[in-house]
C-alpha cells in the first residue's frame, strides 16, 4: 500500500535526514540537519558521558549482492583501524569530517531528502561513534 501523507521515504531511511529536521546538540542547541558542522558533532561528543567520536575512513564501496538499492561500505575505524562493513541504502548520508553530508548516490539523497550531499568516496573520513568506556 502507498505510504500515508505523501511520505515516500524508503524503508530504513530515517526521517531525521530530511532537510529541515530539527536536531538537538548535546548542549541543548537546536539546528537544522543541513546546517550541522563537524564541530557540532565533536563538541557534542565531548559533552557526552558515554559516546566518543571515531574517525572512520572509507576503504571500499561496492554494490550489494542482494539489492541494487543498497551498497556495502567498508570502513577502517578508530586508531586500531578495525574493519567494519555496513550495508546501507545508496542514498544513506554519512557526515564526512570538514566536508558535510555525503552518500554513495548523492543525486538520490538530494531527490529523496532534499539534503545537500556530495559523493562518498574511498579515502573520505566519516564521523562515527563508539562507547567511551569500551574496553
Amino acid at each position: 500500500p502507498p505510504p500515508p501523507s505523501g511520505a515516500a521515504l524508503p524503508p530504513s531511511l530515517p526521517p531525521y535526514f530530511v532537510k529541515g529536521s530539527i536536531i538537538q546538540l548535546a548542549n541543548g542547541e537546536l539546528k537544522r540537519v543541513e546546517d550541522l558542522k563537524t564541530e557540532d558533532f565533536i563538541q557534542s561528543a565531548e559533552i557526552s558521558s558515554d559516546l566518543k567520536i571515531d574517525s572512520s575512513t572509507v576503504e571500499r564501496i561496492e554494490g550489494s549482492r542482494t539489492s541494487p538499492d543498497f551498497a556495502v561500505v567498508q570502513f577502517s575505524v578508530g586508531e586500531h583501524r578495525s574493519q567494519v562493513s555496513v550495508e546501507v541504502l545508496v542514498e544513506y548520508p554519512f557526515f564526512v569530517f570538514g566536508q558535510g553530508w555525503s552518500s554513495c548516490c548523492p543525486d538520490r539523497t538530494t531527490q529523496l531528502l532534499e539534503l545537500p550531499c556530495t559523493k562518498l568516496s574511498v579515502g573520505d573520513v566519516c564521523i562515527s561513534l563508539t562507547l567511551k568506556n569500551l574496553k
Binding site: 530515517p14 526521517p15 531525521y16 535526514f17 529536521s21 530539527i22 536536531i23 538537538q24 546538540l25 548535546a26 537546536l30 540537519v33 550541522l36 557540532d40 558533532f41 557534542s44 557526552s48 559516546l51 567520536i53 571515531d54 572512520s56 570502513f75 575505524v77 578508530g78 586500531h80 578495525s82 567494519v84 555496513v86 554519512f94 557526515f95 566519516c126 564521523i127 562515527s128 561513534l129 563508539t130 562507547l131 569500551l134
Partner: peptide, 19 residues
C-alpha cells in the same frame, strides 16, 4: 515538530576488539 538527538545521525561503528 519532532526533535532528534544529534547522535541518532551518526552511525555507531563499534570495532570488534581484537586484543
Amino acid at each position: 515538530v519532532p526533535v532528534f538527538p544529534w547522535h541518532s545521525l551518526v552511525p555507531f561503528l563499534a570495532p570488534t576488539q581484537s586484543d
